[in-house]
């Protein structure tokens, strides 16, 4: 055992030494390097040159003004819409819909997913149906849902719930299948009952896959929200963008995209990433067991 760990240590040392060639290049270089290592700089730093480029393109008027808005115009627009209260209102609308959709999606998808996954026959029987419903792109449901519920909040929520439930169920089923049989057997032989095995072996074992499913579901749900708002069109950030496009207000379209991107990024960094990080470590554990078994 010692020998294997030591050899990897040595390799790491070798690799590291290759990487940091310029360790003795003076204070400025070292400060720069320290900066590079900080998380905030790493994530936000790259946006600086991109915004600068955007600005430059707009200032040089490479594209006609009616097609392309620069950062100052977008910031002005932001200020204006904030002042009028339009943007906060639309933003709340969008986020409320997303929250409803995600909440109901999780409430329906998780229990249903585990229920299907726990029985072999049910799992095999439901798999093609799940695949098919996943395949009928959520946005394709919009017209029939409009027929049912009209242009209302229910319509948008329905579509988001739909987008989240199916990837989630698929990932729960796949996740439960991935739990190594040795683990279940080990738990059984240690005297765990069915419920215990479910709660302490199967659920945590399936978690990495479930985390992936939630991410996929949210990714689709997010798009479905925007699409539904564009098509159903009464309020929300998607509606704002399309409305602006109709009257040819480029800066407002750009603003909408910036808002959507930032919002997703925040969602990703604050909720999804920590959750996944917590489970990815488990994933490593599960993987190692599989390799041994």
């Amino acid at each position: 055992m010692t020998s294997t760990t030591f050899s990897t240590d040595e390799k790491r040392a070798g690799r590291g030494s290759g990487r940091r060639r310029g360790a003795r290049r003076g204070l400025a270089w070292r400060l720069w390097h320290r900066c590079l290592r900080s998380g905030a700089f790493r994530t936000l730093g790259p946006f600086v040159p991109v915004v600068a480029l955007w600005w430059l393109l707009a200032a040089l008027e490479v594209f006609p003004e009616s097609f392309f808005a620069g950062p100052p115009a977008v910031v002005d627009k932001f200020g204006e819409l904030m002042e009028k209260g339009i943007l906060p209102g639309y933003l709340t609308d969008s986020l409320t819909r997303l929250c409803y959709g995600v909440g109901f999606g999780l409430l329906i998808g998780l229990p249903l997913g585990f229920a299907v996954a726990m029985s072999r026959v049910l799992r095999r029987a439901c798999w093609p149906i799940l695949l098919f419903f996943q395949a009928v792109a959520d946005i394709a449901w919009l017209p029939i849902v409009i027929v049912w519920f009209g242009f209302s909040l229910t319509t948008v929520t329905f579509v988001i719930v739909y987008t989240i439930v199916f990837p989630l169920m698929l990932s729960v089923v796949a996740g439960v299948e991935q739990v190594p049989r040795e683990l279940v057997r080990a738990a059984r032989s240690l005297g765990a009952g069915r419920l215990r095995v479910f709660l302490e072996v199967i659920v945590p074992g399936a978690l990495p896959s479930v985390a992936g499913g939630i991410r996929t579901g949210l990714g689709y749900g997010w798009r479905a929200l925007v699409a539904a708002e564009i098509i159903v069109g009464t309020s929300g950030v998607g509606f704002m963008m399309f409305d602006a496009r109709r009257v040819g207000d480029v800066s407002q379209v750009f603003l909408g995209m910036a808002v959507l991107g930032t919002l997703w990024y925040a969602l990703d960094a604050l909720i999804l990433a920590p959750f996944e990080r917590a489970t990815v470590e488990r994933w490593g554990m599960v993987r190692a067991m599989e390799a041994d078994g």
Binding site: T2, S3, F6, S7, D9, E10, K11, A13, G14, S17, G18, R21
Partner: peptide
Amino acid sequence: PSGCGKTTVLNIVAGFVR
């Protein structure tokens, strides 16, 4: 002995590490 850098010697000879 462990961690004495023999792999590093090899990596230098191979040209992976300067």
